[in-house]
């Protein structure tokens, strides 16, 4: 499959955006770092990376990007902090979410950095589990009816799809395994 004509935007305000761009480069997709409103109009999809959700949330408001992402109807993928931002509600009142996926998030649900870990995520679309990095990770709670669970860790939800939006509580961009990004491109963008 030729991805050359596909451009994916990566929200580049703060966090692990460069690692997402590196992964997409490896998959042969065109990428664009998004820092200004309207830049996303030129993209076939958008990734909201991990980082600090309070920081990213403030920068979204500061740069008037919140409304653009709220209205964006092409595929999106939020990892960690990005997943918190796309969720319906976070347990932390400091975060104003974008309410794009009917699911709640609990911030830093596993604890502080000493509790961060690497573990296998079981995927619904592939027999081989995904070795995933969880950094001060959130948990996904109370999914709405139309939310499809794509990945679990010890039975807990770690990766979901709702219409054309993916959320993961882990960081596929920190590994060399491209399967999660491939899924986003093949199943949501190039379907």
């Amino acid at each position: 499959m030729n991805f050359k004509s596909t451009t994916i935007g990566v929200l580049g305000l703060q966090g692990a955006f460069a690692r997402h761009i590196a992964m997409l480069d490896k998959l042969g997709v065109q990428t664009m770092q998004i820092r200004y409103p309207n830049e996303i109009d030129n993209c076939d999809g958008l990734i909201l990376p991990g980082g600090e959700s309070t920081t990213i949330s403030k920068l979204l408001d500061e740069m008037k990007l919140r409304e653009c992402i709220q209205k964006y109807n092409r595929p999106m993928f939020g990892t960690c902090a990005g997943a918190i931002l796309l969720s319906r509600n976070s347990d932390d009142p400091r975060i104003q979410t974008l309410n794009r996926v009917p699911i709640n998030t609990q911030r830093n649900a596993y604890g502080r950095q000493v509790e961060s870990f690497i573990a296998s995520v079981d995927l619904s679309f592939d027999k081989k589990p995904f070795n995933a990095v969880f950094i001060r990770a959130p948990k996904l709670r109370q999914p709405g009816k139309e939310v499809k669970v794509l990945g679990t860790i010890n039975g807990e939800i770690a990766f979901v799809q709702y219409k054309n939006i993916l959320l993961s509580t882990f960081h596929p961009e920190l590994t060399d395994d491209p399967r999660i990004h491939s899924y986003f491109i093949k199943q949501l963008i190039r379907k």
């Binding site: 580049g12 305000l13 703060q14 966090g15 692990a16 955006f17 460069a18 690692r19 991990g50 980082g51 600090e52 920081t55 960690c80 902090a81 950095q113 961060s116 990095v133 950094i135 001060r136 960081h171 920190l174």
Partner: peptide, 9 residues
């Protein structure tokens, strides 16, 4: 991994 999350900040 945590250092990566602090980038650009």
């Amino acid at each position: 991994g945590l250092a990566e999350m602090l980038k650009g900040g």
